[in-house]
Amino acid sequence: MDILDGLTASEFLSDYWQKKPRVIRQAFPGFQCPVSADELAGLACEEGVESRIVIENDNGKPWQLENGPFPPERFERLPARDWTLLVQGLDHWVPDIADLLEHFRFIPNWRLDDIMASYAPQGGSVGPHYDQYDVFLLQARGHRRWTFGGHCDTTSPQVNDTPLRILSHWEGEDTVTLAPGDMLYLPPGIGHHGVAEDDCITLSIGFRAPTVDDILTGFTDFLCSQPGAEAHLNDPDLQVQDNPGTIGAGVIDRIEELIRDKLNDRSQLALWFGQYATAPKSMDIVVPAEEPITPEDLATAITGGEQLRWNEGSRFAYHELDDETALFVDGERYLLKGDARPLAPLLCAGSRVSMKPLARMAGESALLGLLTTLYNQGSVYFE
């Protein structure tokens, strides 16, 4: 497979990532979609699965949106064409879909959002729009015609009387039809419109980035939970002012110093961001193991050659500090020291853990205890 169309990962990131679209023919040659339309409809009926139906014209109302879960009979009442079913987080529920992500590990784990499936009969579409994230659109079944190009933002005209952000006056720059195995990369803000030419399924591999608001509010909330946050601003050097209504420059200086002191602690920032970035999108799938395992049983399974893999909804990352390595799994952090530090990059390299080096580490009781914790909380399991 050549998912980058002959480019190296460095070349793609330098020339295309967040810069311009790229059409990649047969990124996945002979691709067979692991799920059928009926299976997607079945998932859309399940609690805990985020799903939506978009109808282009619902009794004269343009681009109407319905949110799941849906009763099975809803699909019997849909028109023959011009509608779309969206199932979010398909990788959380289908291991074969999650395996596709291994081809995109040239992008950091923390940037991954999820894989969304879009099923549509002929004419089905979600309308011309733009997204605020990077996405690879992999054609999994049938054919979809994509028109794309031109930068869009909140000032771009949109259709009224719809809950969706549909562009009302937009003309793309390029048009292509994707067949199974073809893929289109789109950076944030690029207008695009995909229309099903027959019964088709498209898989959207999306990559998220936090907003400035997410970072500021998230980190300050984290700081407010740390020891010492309950302390009050003091002023033992208070002096009489000419006017009691004045907020003196010294007060602002003291507050600025306090804020800078908190923001300059890079280790605190790294620990917060690691936990924030690995918090699972769906807690419905990261659930404790039905049968908890003991460290001894875990060691036996590892040395016996069983394959350990991530829960499909779990997120793994790590950060190197001065004298320790912070491992982040599903919003929790684990600080590793000394000979334990190599465990973090080993666990984070891919969804299937390399078992030979892991077996060499399994003799260390502390590491075995950590692996047991990850197993029992549902972050990893034996395949």
Rank of each mutant, 00 (worst) to 15 (best):
S379Y: 03
P95S: 14
M1D: 14
G248Q: 01
L263S: 03
F106Y: 10
G60C: 02
D153T: 14
R309Y: 11
N57T: 10
D58E: 13
V135G: 08
D15Y: 08
P71W: 01
S156E: 07
L90S: 10
I97L: 10
D261I: 01
T220G: 11
N311R: 01
L368P: 08
I55D: 00
N109D: 01
E256N: 15
N234H: 12
Y119W: 12
L137I: 09
G68P: 12
G206V: 12
R141C: 09
S282L: 11
L7Y: 12
C348Q: 03
T300H: 08
E290G: 15
P95I: 03
T147D: 02
A209P: 09
D214F: 07
V159F: 04
W63G: 14
V329P: 11
D113Q: 06
L184V: 02
A44T: 03
E76K: 15
G142L: 00
R145W: 00
L346E: 01
L7Q: 10
A179I: 00
F316N: 06
P357C: 13
N311H: 07
N160L: 05
G245A: 06
L258C: 09
P342E: 15
L85I: 04
L374D: 01
D82M: 01
L7W: 05
G142D: 03
A301S: 15
R111H: 12
D213E: 15
N311L: 09
S168V: 08
L184M: 08
V135N: 02
L367Q: 01
A179E: 04
I247T: 09
F31M: 03
A349M: 12
A362R: 04
A299S: 14
P236W: 05
Y119V: 06
P187K: 07
Q239H: 12
S156H: 10
G181E: 07
A229I: 07
V287Y: 07
Q158S: 15
L336T: 12
T147M: 04
K20V: 02
W83S: 06
L178H: 05
R141Y: 06
N59K: 13
S14W: 00
H169L: 11
D235H: 04
C348F: 00
C45I: 09
G189R: 01
R111S: 08
F12T: 06
R77N: 15
D131W: 02
D330T: 02
F328G: 10
D82E: 09
S51N: 05
N243T: 09
A289K: 05
Q26M: 07
D134I: 06
D38H: 12
G189E: 11
Q139C: 07
A362I: 15
D198V: 02
A362L: 03
D96N: 07
L258A: 14
